[in-house]
Amino acid sequence: MTVLGARLFWARLIYVPAYALGIAYVRTLVWAVSIVGIVLLLVPLF
C-alpha cells in the first residue's frame, strides 16, 4: 500500500502543468489521484 501511495504521490508533479495549462477536468482527476496517494502513505501510520 505504501509503495502504491508513493507512486501516486508523483501525480502532484503532473498537477502543476495541468493547472498552468488550465485543463480543468484533468487537473481535478490528477488532484484526486494525488490525494489518494497521500492517504495511502498515511494509512500505515495508524
Rank of each mutant, 00 (worst) to 15 (best):
V3A: 09
I35G: 01
R12S: 13
T28R: 14
V39P: 04
W31I: 13
V36F: 08
I23C: 05
V30D: 02
I23K: 12
A32G: 03
V26A: 10
V26Y: 01
T2G: 15
A11C: 09
V39H: 11
G5Q: 00
W10E: 07
Y19H: 11
G22T: 11
L41H: 01
F46Y: 00
I35Y: 09
A11G: 07
L41G: 02
L13N: 06
R27H: 04
I14H: 14
R12P: 05
L40S: 00
L21H: 10
I38G: 15
A6Q: 07
M1T: 01
A24H: 09
T28H: 06
V33H: 12
V43N: 05
L42Q: 01
L13K: 02
V39N: 08
A18C: 12
Y15W: 11
L4W: 03
R27W: 06
R12L: 14
M1V: 00
S34V: 01
R12Q: 11
A6R: 04
I35R: 03
A6S: 10
I14S: 06
L8Y: 02
L42M: 02
A24D: 10
V16A: 11
A6Y: 00
Y19D: 10
L42G: 06
W10I: 03
V16C: 07
R27Q: 11
A18S: 15
L8N: 02
I35N: 02
G37K: 01
G5I: 07
V3S: 05
V43R: 13
A11W: 01
Y19V: 00
I23M: 10
R27C: 03
V30Q: 06
M1D: 09
I14F: 13
A32W: 06
L40K: 02
L41M: 12
M1N: 07
L40Y: 09
P17C: 05
V16I: 13
W31D: 15
I38S: 14
R12M: 13
A32E: 08
A11D: 00
F46E: 06
A20Q: 15
A32N: 08
L13F: 10
Y15F: 12
I35S: 05
G22W: 03
F9A: 02
L40E: 00
V39M: 14
V43M: 12
L40P: 01
V36S: 09
L40G: 08
A24Y: 03
V39C: 12
A11N: 01
V33Y: 07
L29Y: 15
Y19K: 13
Y19T: 11
A11T: 08
S34P: 05
L45C: 03
L40D: 09
V33W: 09
F46S: 05
F46C: 04
